Amino acid sequence: MRKLIMWNVVTLDGYFEGEKNWDLSFHELVWGKELEEFSLTQLKSADMLVFGAATYKGMADYWTKAEGDEGEIAKLMNEIQKIVCSSTLKTADWNNTIVAKDAVAEISKLKLQGNGDMFVFGSGNLSESLMKAKLFDEFRLCIAPVFLGDGRLLFNQGIPHKKLNLLEAHPLATGGIILRYAPKEESRQ
């Protein structure tokens, strides 16, 4: 069975995007050799990437044009199978992409069909839907050492209460920290 994993870089005050769409400048605070190696390890374990429509468009635009130092990451991002979850998109042009109209139903089925990891990058609205459906097997966050003060929060009100087990806390030389959590199993009474 595939694992569904959330991956996001967030500020200490919980923002995954600045005030404007695609304002990810705080990512530069944590980017370095360690995070690059972690990113490559994640991508090599992935057999599917999952995006909401807005994140998909931004990622496709960026990674299909990426050059220079991002060669290996760009190659993997462009090769791995992708799912864009959207009720409005008719087609998706980025390599190896299919469109899923009903994210919760489709992701539930896809989790049963393989053994690799499925990663959700960004995609705040999609992540919220998948959290409410209790589909995530793991949450991976890289905390950037900054208070942004405004922008788009990753975890909004309405996210169901869920206790988590810490799997790993890995400090980075840049001052960031990678945290890995898994949902605690709910005890049956």
Rank of each mutant, 00 (worst) to 15 (best):
D102K: 06
T41G: 13
W94Y: 10
E106M: 04
D13L: 01
Y62K: 04
Y62H: 13
E106Y: 05
A46L: 04
V10G: 02
R152S: 11
Q42H: 09
E106R: 07
G116Y: 05
S129L: 07
E79Q: 10
V104M: 00
G124S: 14
D23N: 12
F136D: 10
L110T: 02
W22R: 06
I5Y: 07
N96Q: 14
T174A: 09
N96I: 06
M6I: 00
D93P: 00
V84H: 04
I159Y: 12
W63L: 09
A60N: 11
E70F: 15
M131E: 03
E34C: 04
I107R: 01
A103N: 03
F136L: 13
E185Q: 04
C85T: 07
Y181C: 03
S129R: 10
F121W: 12
Y181V: 03
H161N: 10
L141M: 11
W63M: 08
L12W: 10
P145M: 01
S127D: 00
I177S: 11
T91Y: 04
V50I: 15
G71L: 03
K82P: 05
G149I: 12
K90V: 06
E36C: 05
L172C: 10
S123F: 09
A92C: 13
L166D: 04
K33L: 10
I5M: 14
F26E: 10
G124F: 01
S108L: 03
I107G: 03
F155G: 01
T64F: 02
I73K: 07
P171S: 13
F155M: 09
K33P: 14
E19A: 15
E67D: 15
S187Q: 06
I5D: 10
T174C: 04
P160C: 11
T55S: 14
H161M: 11
M48F: 01
Q157V: 06
A182E: 14
I107C: 04
R140S: 10
Q81V: 00
L167H: 02
A54E: 13
K20G: 05
E28Q: 12
D69E: 15
I73R: 09
S127P: 01
N96E: 14
M1R: 05
S86V: 13
K20D: 14
L164E: 11
G14N: 02
I143V: 15
H170M: 10
L40T: 09
